[in-house]
Design a binder for these strands. Structure first.
Length: 963
RNA sequence: GCGCACGUGGCGAAAUGGCAGACGCGCCAGACUUAGGAUCUGGUUCCGUAAGGAGUGGGGGUUCAAGUCCCUCCGUGCGCACCA
């Protein structure tokens, strides 16, 4: 399979320079307060050698970040290096431009596969994880990325997760103050007067609030709290999952069924940040589709809550004695004071509400169901409770439900309307109850049709011919006049306003904003995750209460286990460690662990100060690298700032896959906002610009997978073609954000290009000798490398104007394309340059030195080798031959060189291209017109015609309009 | 069903509203070679010997001029999915 002859000895060149970079710490970044080694190229470039630097001494920062990988046993996938190469090129480019670049890498190393392997084999997940990290490190290093490895982090490192646990404690010890609209320490929380205690608590548990002690009230307000509620339980994975991890009723990982099951779990109050998470999307430079995904997930909708009084049971509330006879029912205490609260985005359709529906789990169902309907309601509830979420969605086509026997009063017109229960109404959204307006809601219409409920038009479509049945958009209210309020004749927005104002005035309802976002289920029944720094203690009443461990107890390590399975009675694996579990005072440890997202929520902050032993990140490092001064975002979809002197707040560029759109990227923003509110970080958003790389498909255009057998192994490509060719190909395939199929033939194309670059620079004769020597003494290959001489055509000769033009065209294109992240077209510009330069008999070294600097970010190994030969044997123009290639200043193009004296202009006749004319670049319009009218190939289309008009766009084209 | 992207040669793709197909793959021809799966040179959207004509998913529109802007239909991908 191996191709005949190497284009160039990359197998020697690449390890050589990787070793050089490691030895020299070439890509180390420095924090304020550090003393710069005099010999370091960064210090040399910026004249900071030996100096103890402050943030003011350092050049502008550029923080370019990759989504750190989970180090799986399968090793690196070709998708990983796609993003890594893009960020590495940018890192190297900005370094050359003079920025102080932070480009780190680490490991998201907690995770299920290592734990599952431990369950099977008994091998500790740490062993598996370390082996996988070692393999990933080898693979990533073989690609020559310019990471600052001194800042490497692993989420499984106790010195790392110490701070993950610490941040959890900050969250635990905070609450969201609606008055200041931010997170605050729990100490600022005041026990409220009874009247206005926690309006977020649904009415049905209000009693519990009334009885709550101060402590319980605090626990209820914490941003990390314990909840006993139905959660997503995945039996196959043996753990609960967050809403974001459940797709179509199946687990995101593995696709196993997920059921709803009530369990006591830790939750994080992300819903308190819903509005900020939504609004601040406008301040960051992310793709429109990604922002849209987050917006949809947060799911803000504006509307109104409306109270419907429940009609007294039986025929009439006027016969109070009836109530006392209803003893067979579980609860008949009400005298019309019972209310059903609904949420609607269309209060203007209130007159069209012809029935109501409660979720089967709704607390009022027990109270309002009549004796006659009791059995039917019970059966229905039992039936829906058995259904998994998956079944509930799959069976969505056919609506089901039963009547409770009760009626409610429509507050706008006093109509008595029946109250049903149906599983198309979700307990977890809004108030768990709806008013049904079958005329203007698809689901209500289906339900009304099936159960023969009345349908009443209340909105007239703008087009009178349009059928009003199922008309959902804005129109004009009709049939909407009651005894006290009328909105008939009003357009939908006005109707909404008027009726909402009336409801508020009457105390019947109020304007409300609802979110689809739910609180984040934060605990998992696993071994291989961060243990919660929480213990449980019995209080005076014998009730278990949770309590935070002191910071001095961190890091809290997981116990050693022989068996990583859950306990036989279904407790998480940590419960097996009896010694660990119980403390001397009898209190017990929390046995759940944090989800994998915990570590990835803040790793980008740890990179800033990765070895700090006293805090998660020092203030100086944080404010320098995150760039505290806030810049207003321009409303255009700007690319990253073109000027290195303009740092952006937060991470300047974050590149990763789209699979984290509503997981990691939402969670990390949430944690960051809490840390911001508490004063631990200086920017409200973590990631200023974010780019999603597209998927790399197999050669057959299908998604790479083991079962299809179309997986490309990066190691094999690097062995065959070298890291530079691999990097170059991944960037040449197409736009970064697009998904595109792999083509090994395409790798050969860029590999040939690198070979041409090599042959342009080196002496053919000396290379032949090198190959002969290598063949004779394979073990000494590396030392023969220095025998390869520079191509004699490469010399100190002054460049011609044409050569400078070729160079500067290339500089311009590559620079502009890198600013716009258009790597593929930047590479094609360099290919054009090389094709041209190959034809030069005399190759001025100054021109080629600039080209080397352009190519360096893309193919760093090859260019280092050629740069070494160039500076050793020729003058690299005005460049400092002592300065490392990685820090050589990026060349600037001279616009004056790119101006042509004469240009070719297309001539069109009636918009069709016919000929080109060569004219002076600044020729006046009249001259262009005259020349165009004489253009030879245009003549056949002009004879016998009248010229009606001539459009002249100087420097662009001439269009002759004839009739 | 709703939302968001995207449809250009045999393939990956280029094209501030102004010469469609840069660059690369593949293919064809030539040069150098004992040889070529190395390298170099030329060609390569389709129809046509040519002049020329057609052409960026289909249809319509705006414009002197549309791959690009607008409308509509079709197709592909992604996201959400009974969210009231």
């Amino acid at each position: 399979m191996s191709s005949s002859r190497r284009q160039y000895p990359f197998h020697l060149v690449e390890p050589k320079w990787q070793q050089f970079w490691t030895d020299r710490q070439t890509f180390r970044a420095f924090n304020p307060g550090e003393t710069l080694p005099p010999e370091h190229p960064f210090a040399r470039r910026h004249q900071l050698g030996g100096k103890t630097v402050s943030a003011l001494d350092l050049p502008p920062k550029f923080y370019v970040l990759d989504m750190f990988p989970y180090p799986s046993g399968a090793g690196l996938h070709v998708g990983h290096p796609e993003g890594y190469t893009a960020t590495d090129i940018l890192a190297r480019y900005r370094r050359a431009q003079g920025s102080h670049v932070l480009h780190p890498m680490g490991w998201d190393s907690f995770g299920l596969p290592a734990e599952q392997y431990a369950v099977k084999t008994g091998q500790h997940p740490r062993i598996t994880t370390e082996a996988n990290i070692a393999n990933f490190t080898r693979q990533i290093k073989s690609l020559g990325f310019s990471y600052d490895w001194s800042r490497e982090v692993a989420t499984t490192d106790p010195e790392y997760f110490r701070w993950t646990q610490w941040i959890f404690l900050q969250i635990y010890n905070s609450w969201f103050n609606p008055e200041t609209n931010r997170a605050e320490p729990i100490s600022t929380l005041k026990y409220p007067p009874e009247r206005d205690r926690d309006p977020n608590v649904p009415p049905n548990i209000h009693r519990a609030v009334e009885e709550a002690k101060r402590r319980e009230f605090a626990d209820r307000c914490r941003l990390a709290y314990v909840s006993e509620a139905p959660v997503n339980w995945c039996a196959e994975l043996g753990t609960v999952l967050a809403n974001e991890e459940v797709i179509d009723g199946k687990s995101e990982v593995g696709g196993f069924p997920v059921i709803r099951k009530p369990m006591r779990q830790w939750m994080l109050r992300i819903t308190a940040f819903a509005e900020k998470l939504l609004a601040d999307l406008d301040t960051i430079d992310w793709s429109a589709s990604l922002k849209e995904m987050q917006r949809n997930w947060i799911g803000r909708s504006e509307g109104a809550e409306v109270d419907f009084a429940v009609a007294a049971p039986r025929e009439s509330a006027a016969e109070p004695n009836e109530n006392e006879n209803g003893g067979a029912l579980p609860s008949r205490r009400y005298e019309g004071e019972l209310k059903i609260r609904v949420f609607t985005t269309r209060p203007d359709t209130l007159f069209g509400a012809t029935y109501m529906v409660l979720a089967p789990e709704h607390a009022l169902v027990d109270e309002i169901t009549t004796e006659e309907q009791w059995q039917a309601v019970e059966d229905y509830r039992a039936h829906t409770a058995r259904k998994s979420d998956l079944e509930r969605t799959e069976l969505a086509k056919e609506k089901t439900g039963v009547w409770t026997g009760a009626y409610a009063i429509n507050p706008v017109n006093g109509e008595k309307i029946p109250v049903w229960i149906a599983d198309y109404v979700l307990a977890s959204y809004g108030t768990g109850a709806i008013m049904a307006v079958p005329a203007h809601d698809t689901r209500d219409f289906e339900f009304a049709t099936k159960f023969n409920l009345p349908v009443m038009q209340v909105v007239q479509p703008p087009d009178p011919k349009m059928d009003w049945h199922g008309f959902l958009d804005d129109g004009t209210s009709v049939n909407s006049t009651g005894p006290e309020i009328s909105i008939t004749g009003l357009a939908t927005p006005e109707a909404k306003k008027k009726i909402t104002a009336w409801l508020e005035e009457k105390g019947l309802g109020k304007k409300t904003i609802n979110y689809k976002l739910r609180d984040w289920l934060f605990s998992r029944q696993r071994y291989w995750g961060e243990p919660f720094p929480i213990i449980w203690k019995k209080d005076a009443n014998g009730i278990l209460q949770h309590e935070a461990l002191p910071e001095s107890a961190l890091p809290l390590l997981p116990p050693a286990l022989d068996d990583y399975k859950p306990t036989p009675d279904g407790q998480p694996p940590l419960a097996r460690a009896k010694d660990w579990l119980t403390l001397p005072d009898g209190s017990t440890r929390e046995t759940n662990t944090m989800p994998q997202w915990a570590g990835s929520c803040w790793y980008y902050l740890r990179y800033l100060d990765a070895r700090n032993k006293t805090t998660f990140v020092s203030k100086d490092a944080e404010s320098y690298w995150m760039g505290s001064e806030k810049l207003p975002i321009s409303n255009s979809q700007s690319s990253i700032s073109n000027s290195p002197s303009q740092p952006t707040p937060g991470v300047d560029l974050y590149v990763g896959g789209t699979e984290h759109a509503v997981l990691h990227l939402l969670y990390a923003r949430f944690w960051h906002k809490v840390l911001f509110d508490l004063g631990h970080v200086s920017t409200p958003e973590p990631f200023f610009k974010l780019v999603n790389q597209g998927l790399i498909l197999g050669e057959n255009g299908q998604k790479m997978s083991k079962s299809i057998g179309n997986v490309i192994n990066p190691d094999a490509i690097v062995t065959e073609y070298g890291a530079d060719a691999f990097r170059l190909y991944e960037m040449f395939m197409g736009p970064l954000e697009m998904s595109k199929p792999w083509s090994t033939k395409g790798v050969e194309g860029v590999y040939r290009f690198l070979g041409r670059v090599w042959r342009l620079f080196v002496d053919e004769q000396s290379e032949t000798e090198f190959e002969q020597n290598c063949a004779a003494h394979p073990v000494r290959e590396a030392e023969f490398l220095t025998q390869i001489r520079l191509n004699p055509a490469l010399c100190d000769a002054a460049p011609t104007t044409a050569q400078l033009k070729t160079l500067h065209t290339c500089i311009k294109k590559v620079t502009e394309d890198l600013d716009g992240l258009r790597f593929n077209t930047a590479i094609s510009a360099m290919m054009v340059f090389i094709s041209e330069a190959m034809t030069w008999e005399v190759k001025p070294s100054a021109v080629l030195a600039d080209f080397i600097v352009l190519l360096q970010p893309f193919a760093p190994h090859l260019t280092e080798e050629l740069w070494g030969k160039l500076v050793a044997h020729a003058k690299p123009g005005a460049r400092d031959p002592q300065l490392d290639l990685a820090y050589q200043p990026w060349p600037k193009f001279d616009p004056a060189l790119l101006v042509e004296d004469t240009i070719e202009l297309p001539v069109q006749v009636n918009g069709k291209f016919r000929d080109v004319i060569r004219v002076a670049v600044d020729a006046p319009a009249a001259e262009l017109e005259a020349t165009a009218l004489k253009a030879g190939k245009a003549q056949p289309f002009l004879v016998g015609k009248t010229v009606k008009k001539v459009i002249v766009v100087p420097k662009r084209m001439v269009n002759i309009v004839v009739a």
